[in-house]
């Protein structure tokens, strides 16, 4: 037997696993779980400081299938953003990795999704988007195409919501889209999202093999393989020195992440600048009307403060503060009392 490969913190790939998936064989979500484990292993992530957050649904079950050494909170339907907000405010050294679905985010959780973007909470927000409710057997979600037919739910008369467009309008600072069948791109975007300071949304088309995988569905494997526009190719540069980044202007664009690292974005199909909101809007809008799946980094803004920055909390996370720093002194109580209207 050969030696098992270990990463920089001495862990094996298996140390990043958890329970076996109970989703359907072939589900796109399983492949996303695999990429999460792969990235965590490759990047030698410390699982103790990751929290896995989710709502309700097939996608929201998936945190039980990866990173067994991380705390997890499988909360209530559509409300993962609020729970994550509280957890990160309480301890801003935690890295929140959240998994939601199109129903959990686009239907029941749409309000919290929009407000999360507004606050720019530091977290990675993965939507495993398949256009249907799996656990309740195939009803349409808000991202299902107009006119779409499925064996169980019949015909969908309503227009879909584009989560990336909604995030952009909502003030999101990191918007990416991918396809669960493109393992390499999913991994790259995950790594990139993890180094973003702010809410990093990755909308991943992740086919439901049981209820929504007909070839004419925009959430199917076939559609993902045949109607994909890959916007850009992302490279990571291991340097903090801008001058060292080599690129051809017009083709490769450098972007500095919050932690100081540089990435390069190689433009592929469209003339798109992901740091430009109008450009992101145009790309998304065009793709939405032509039912193309644009993938890659759609929008990034590294300047926006997060809610953690805005609240001006102690550098030490709130949960680590001892009683001596949380309970004001007796003199302060007396001061508060002296400000009341007293009898004498």
């Amino acid at each position: 037997m050969g030696r098992t490969k270990t990463n920089a913190i001495g862990l094996e790939r298996g140390d990043y696993s958890y329970n076996d998936s109970t989703l359907c064989p072939g589900c796109g979500h399983n492949s996303i779980s695999n990429q999460i484990m792969a990235v965590a292993f490759e990047e030698s992530l410390d699982q103790h400081h990751i929290i896995k957050m989710s709502g309700i649904g097939c996608s929201s079950k998936s945190p039980a299938y990866f990173l067994g050494r991380s705390h997890a909170f499988n909360s209530v339907h559509g409300r993962m953003p609020s729970v994550t907000t509280g957890a990160v405010m309480a301890n801003h050294t935690l890295h929140a990795l959240a998994v939601s679905g199109d129903g959990d985010t686009g239907n029941i959780g749409f309000g919290q999704f929009k407000h999360l973007m507004r606050r720019n909470l530091p977290m990675v927000y993965i939507v495993e988007n398949n256009g249907v409710y799996g656990l309740t057997k195939g009803q349409f979600s808000a991202t299902a195409d107009k006119g779409q037919k499925t064996k169980y739910a019949g015909h969908n008369p309503f227009s879909p919501i584009d989560l990336c467009l909604e995030a952009l309008i909502g003030g999101a600072t990191f918007i990416a889209r991918s396809f669960s069948g493109d393992a390499k791109q999913v991994r790259t975007l995950l790594k990139l999202a993890m180094s973003h300071r702010g809410t990093a949304l990755i909308d991943i088309i992740s086919p439901c093999v049981t209820f929504n995988d007909r070839d004419d569905s925009t959430k199917s494997y076939h559609w993902g393989k045949t109607h994909r526009d890959i916007l850009n190719e992302i490279g990571f540069v291991q340097t903090f020195d801008e001058i060292a980044v080599e690129y051809d202007e017009g083709e490769v664009q450098p972007v500095q992440m919050h932690d100081g690292t540089w990435i390069t974005l190689k433009k592929l199909t469209a003339d798109h600048d992901p740091t430009n909101k109008e450009s992101a809007f145009r790309v998304l809008n065009e793709a939405h009307s032509t039912q193309q799946i644009v993938t890659g980094l759609i929008y990034i803004n590294t300047d926006q403060p997060t809610v953690v920055d805005i609240e001006n909390m102690t550098d030490e996370p709130l949960v680590h503060l001892p009683e001596s720093r949380l309970r004001p002194s007796q003199a302060m109580l007396e001061d508060a009392m002296s400000s009341l209207f007293a009898a004498n």
Partner: peptide, 14 residues
């Protein structure tokens, strides 16, 4: 959202 946030924070130890 208000109670969701405090549930998250309470779980994290605040």
């Amino acid at each position: 959202a208000a109670i969701g946030m405090i549930v998250g924070a309470g779980w994290a130890g605040a």
